[in-house]
């Protein structure tokens, strides 16, 4: 048997769809746990929790490996899915004049390619809204700062919070003592002492404020998005589509991998249903919560 069968055989293609799909389900759980940091704690504490999480996600080497696996999985899942769909369309050049597919299958099971394409479009827009701004955008992200009132001079001061691991500790207060003239921000979030050219610490990119403002809540750093309603509506719609995609995809992945056993089928189906409702609903709840508590 040729080695290319591992990629080209119709059954092997299904294995890859299943494996990448299930991996992306795991990714969804991780992503959701991260997103929940946005709303689990209120105020400064919540902001701190989320920005710290965002810092961790952009600096941990293991996360880097996982993120590349995720990008690859999304691309592979999409490309393989499109190739399968084209092949499947070709398998019936003349369609039926009268067809009743609802009599034997669910519409979302038949429309996986359409649902998946909508999700792919959502991922592109979603990544350009957050991931791109966090990692590559030429306009610098605002850095996480707090306002402190000096008890002696009684003047409010804006101080940057620093991530001081691996650097000699630079407190926010010391940072401010350096003054604007002496401090410089390089590479988006690194504080440098201009005079001695030494890195004093790293700030947190304020992804919290970016996200919260995007979904309609004013923050100190960024003003609320004027079209937040549209952003929230699109997000919620995408989660409904994701839910339908998972409703078929989750249990279908097990069938593709050959896991079909009378003892476990009911459990897999039930878990798949719960997963495909709870996860997208929890994702959708976050922008809705931000939007309606502004």
């Amino acid at each position: 048997m040729s080695k290319s069968a591992i990629l080209s055989s119709s059954i092997a293609k299904k294995y890859w769809m299943a494996l990448t799909g299930l991996f992306l389900c795991l990714f969804l759980v991780g992503h959701l746990l991260g997103n929940l940091q946005l709303i689990l704690k209120a105020g400064e504490e919540g902001k701190r929790a989320f920005n710290e999480y965002a810092y961790f996600m952009t600096h941990n080497p293991l996360i880097k490996v996982m993120s590349y696996l995720t990008y690859l999985s999304i691309l592979f899942h999409a490309v393989d899915g499109i190739l399968l769909t084209i092949q499947n369309k070709k398998a019936r050049p003349i369609g039926y004049a009268h067809n009743s597919p609802n009599a034997n299958s669910k519409f979302f099971a038949r429309q996986m390619a359409v649902l998946g394409s909508i999700i792919l479009i959502f991922i592109v827009i979603h990544m350009s809204n957050f991931w791109w701004k966090m990692k590559y955008s030429s306009d610098p992200m605002p850095l996480h700062s707090i306002t402190v009132v000096d008890p002696q001079s009684k003047t409010p001061q804006s101080l940057y919070i620093t991530h001081s691991d691996n650097y000699f500790p630079v407190s926010a207060f010391e940072n401010s003592q350096m003054g604007e003239a002496q401090m410089e921000i390089r590479n988006g979030n690194e504080f440098f002492n201009k005079q001695v050219d030494v890195k004093m610490g790293e700030g947190y990119k304020d992804l919290y404020s970016l996200t919260v403002a995007f979904f309609g809540k004013d923050t100190d750093a960024i003003k609320a998005n004027e079209q937040a309603g549209l952003a929230v509506a699109f997000y919620v719609l995408a989660m409904i589509v994701l839910s339908l995609h998972l409703m078929h995809g989750f249990s279908s992945a097990f069938q593709s991998l050959g896991v079909n056993h009378r003892r476990y089928n009911a459990g897999i189906k039930l878990f798949g249903k719960l997963f495909s409702i709870i996860i997208p609903a929890a994702f959708a709840m976050i922008p809705l919560y931000i939007f309606f508590t502004k």
């Binding site: 499947n88 009599a103 069938q255």
Partner: peptide, 25 residues
């Protein structure tokens, strides 16, 4: 290619189960 919609199992006059597809997989 199979996308596990399950239409075949419903329409099969002999009630062949999807279990057989999983076994082939």
């Amino acid at each position: 290619n199979c996308t596990n919609t399950g239409a075949c199992e419903v329409e099969c006059p002999k009630g062949i189960s999807l279990e057989n597809i999983a076994r082939m997989n």
